[in-house]
Design a protein around this nucleic acid. Structure first.
Lengths: 154, 154
DNA sequence: AATGAAATATACTCCCT
DNA sequence: AGGGAGTATATTTCATT
């Protein structure tokens, strides 16, 4: 499927505010609301739009700490970990990666005690490195049309 | 502000699908639509709901690669990097972290050539380690009520 | 803080171009 | 693939409890 410039405008609108109405999007980009609805449906059907998520503040919901934790799995412990990690509700994202470590986990935690308890759960699977997030320099930056990358980044 | 169980239900709904109408949310949790609207407005005003973002597939928008890149900044190069990173449109998230590295960057890239070019931009700021993301074990897991963590994780 | 009702706005379906 | 009309549904405001 081809993503034309109008679809990129729709993707940009929805990445900024997923709760915009079709009518509001249509006004911004000069299209009728049924046309916007039809384009959004196609973007969803093709898996380009994967979903719409509310961003919830972890600090204000009682999670003082956010951390990136890497795991270098012990022999034969990677698969058991991959099955187990889906049960950890503190985990926001977990990726299999290349490099010296096998896994990187993004996690929210109540406090230092909770962090310690979480690390204890991990160390049976491998070597753990903890990086506490101090601040956000870029947060949820939207994906843009590749064709525009060079103009911006040079 | 207190987040009661009804607000947690609303947060859960919106983290699953931010484009649900207030009326639909109300039907799910047994509340009228004006009541839902009022609660959402308060959650927004208190900064608990920070925004609503469409999830866009990086693979299907022409970005074959996603990577986590760490930076261990050279002396005096951390601040210049922090100013510069906001201009890199490939960067989805960038965090200041504790540990051996100072910065972790989540980035989408067209291909290996683009990755190489991006690393070249970083190496003037510090020591770079690249971890290409192979797969997603957990993706955008919602934040849940702390009180429910133990029940789930044990 | 929630409900119900009235006014406005939006979404959805269908037909036309 | 998009516009316009008509119907159903949703949002918003306000009065009431």
């Amino acid at each position: 499927m081809k993503i034309d410039s109008i679809n990129w405008e729709i993707l940009q609108c929805l990445q900024e505010n997923a709760r915009l109405s079709n009518a509001e999007i249509g006004r911004k980009i000069g299209l009728s609301s049924p046309a916007v609805a039809e384009r959004i449906k196609k973007l969803e059907d093709y898996g380009i739009l994967k979903g719409y998520k509310a961003e919830v503040s972890y600090e204000k919901t009682g999670y003082q700490l956010k951390a990136m934790i890497t795991l270098k799995a012990f022999m034969g412990r990677l698969k058991p970990f991959m099955l187990k990690v889906t049960e950890f509700n503190e985990v926001l994202n977990c990726y299999r990666i290349t490099g010296n470590e096998n896994i990187i986990i993004e996690v929210v935690l109540r406090d230092q005690i909770h962090l310690q308890e979480f690390i204890d759960r991990l160390i049976t699977y491998g070597e753990v490195k903890t990086h506490i997030i101090l601040s956000n320099l870029v947060e949820n930056n939207p994906i843009i049309d590749q064709a525009q990358l060079d103009d911006f980044d040079v």
